[in-house]
């Protein structure tokens, strides 16, 4: 049904549109993401940023257009199939299992034993333990493995959710406002973490904090009313008169 051709991009979004009762939240969007690229999407409230992530991960179904991930069409896959294809997504408010320990949160995200019977027979062996410890160290929670996740600080919850994605080793990592509610120091640590994990994969981030964006972004795209307003280096984008108009004009 889609005429789009194969590309070298990790993610190729072409002519993507979604309309809710006639309101086009995303309007004819074209967007490409390279391997090893950390791309930040910014834009005022209601610009359609979160909707784009929802469309990629299958939470919302598109009205028309194509989303190709490693040349695989995602628009007709279900949510868990998209995850299995290699796409991981962090939600805006930390979405973790509050009643389970950090270890159990990571274990559930471990990409083995995802079927009904696989999960019944799943063995928490040395390989799994090592992987969990490795990821926990990466997200600076190695000392909190047995802490109930609900007791973590807001920033630590954000890290845990990032860790839950990392353990799946996704080719595309999508983070919706990863530093919301974090202290200055935590923001610095998160920036470092994101720079590290963008190696070997593609990362798509939605963020409002411009200082943070400047620190991590390889490329920035400004979304406004479901359309791309500007795209490129942070410096160029900041100087763009259209962007200044949208952010300061009203």
């Amino acid at each position: 049904m889609n005429m789009s051709t194969n590309t070298d991009f990790t993610l190729a979004i072409e002519d993507l549109t979604v309309s809710f009762d006639g309101f086009k939240a995303v309007d004819n969007l074209n967007f490409y993401l390279d391997r090893n690229e950390l791309h930040v999407v910014i834009g005022p409230n209601g610009a359609g940023k979160t909707t784009v992530l929802d469309l990629i991960c299958g939470k919302t179904k598109s009205t028309s257009g194509s989303i190709k991930f490693l040349n695989k069409e995602l628009t007709n896959l279900s949510e868990h199939e998209i995850v299995l294809a290699g796409v991981g997504r962090k939600f805006q408010t930390p979405s973790i299992y509050e009643n389970l320990s950090v270890m159990e949160n990571l274990e559930i995200s471990y990409p083995k034993g995802r079927g009904v019977f696989g999960s019944l027979m799943f063995k928490h062996d040395a390989v799994v333990r090592d992987k969990i410890l490795e990821v926990a160290t990466q997200i600076m929670l190695e000392k909190a493995l047995h802490t109930e996740a609900g007791l973590l600080s807001h920033g630590q919850k954000q890290w845990l959710e990032i860790g839950m994605l990392l353990i799946q080793d996704p080719q595309l990592l999508m983070l919706d406002e990863p530093v919301a509610g974090m202290s200055v120091k935590e923001r610095e640590q998160t920036a470092e973490l994101l720079n590290k994990i963008s190696e070997g994969r593609s990362v798509l981030v939605i963020e409002h904090d411009m200082e943070f964006v400047a620190r991590i972004a390889h490329k920035v795209t400004v979304l406004h009313q479901g359309k791309i307003l500007a795209s490129g280096d942070m410096k160029d984008v900041q100087k763009d008169p259209k962007v200044i108009e949208v952010y300061l004009g009203h």
Binding site: C57, K59, E79, H80, V83, L84, G88, R89, F91, S95, I96, Y97, E98, N99, L100, E104, N105, E107, I108, S109, P111, R114, S119, M164, Q168
Partner: peptide
Amino acid sequence: RILLAMRDKEDRVRFSG
């Protein structure tokens, strides 16, 4: 544990594959 996780955050389980 997946049962418990589903009860808590069904969407997160779904988006964990």
